[in-house]
Amino acid sequence: MAISKRKRAQYIRFGVYALSIALVVAVVLIVDWSRLQGAMFRWDLVKKQFPGLLTTAARNTIIFTILGFAGGLALGLFLALLRLSRARAYRWFAATYIEIFRGIPLVVTLLILGFGIPIAFQWQWPNPYLRGAVPLALVAAAYMAETIRAGIQAVPQGQMEAARSLGMSYSRAMATVIIPQAMRIIIPPLTNEFVLLIKDTSLISILGVTEGTIDLARYGRNGVFDSANSTPLIVAGLAYLVMTLPLTQLVAYMERRQKASGR
């Protein structure tokens, strides 16, 4: 049986389509929709999530994210500059930092900084938001440092030479010539970092939460304990999507535009 390669590829494609459609139809027919809705999407429970979901949980998730991102960006930029420094000790320090905080799970970092350090140093976090956001920022900085370093290195060497030849100092040239160009390159990957950070804030609640600092994921879980029903988690999941989808779409748009403009 001699079928040409292109025809075979076509048959395979049709086969996959047909199988997918059959699968969807089977799921629709087999699943007991009313039971599923009763267990996971009860309207009365959806309504019960509001307004607390917005006024407390989503608000706290955003606060943790923004604190973590701002701290991570500032520290990440600093680490990236150390990484590119001519001084070997600086490079070594930054590389070690990055390896450590990238290599340890966020949960472990959260527990060490949230419980371990306060006990070891007889010290207390002055603010519950900082207690969650600082570990988040320290870990985010490690990832962002590598992104920012790559962005800075993507700016042609001639830009630094031109700036220095005009009498700018290294830091002046970085601030006015190199970093603005690097930022344009790294905005899409940094936005991805931001999305990851939004989701990572859901781990902060392992440090324990008070009524006021509860985040979206924990709010959903508490809802599940109260109602013995999954609806609150589904609502929380949707709330994450409402935050992350616009951002991922924005990244896709920026990448398309960068591709089109060719720089």
Partner: peptide
């Protein structure tokens, strides 16, 4: 410079 190196 040969490659101009204007700030884009």
């Amino acid at each position: 410079f040969q490659s101009f190196n204007l700030f884009p």
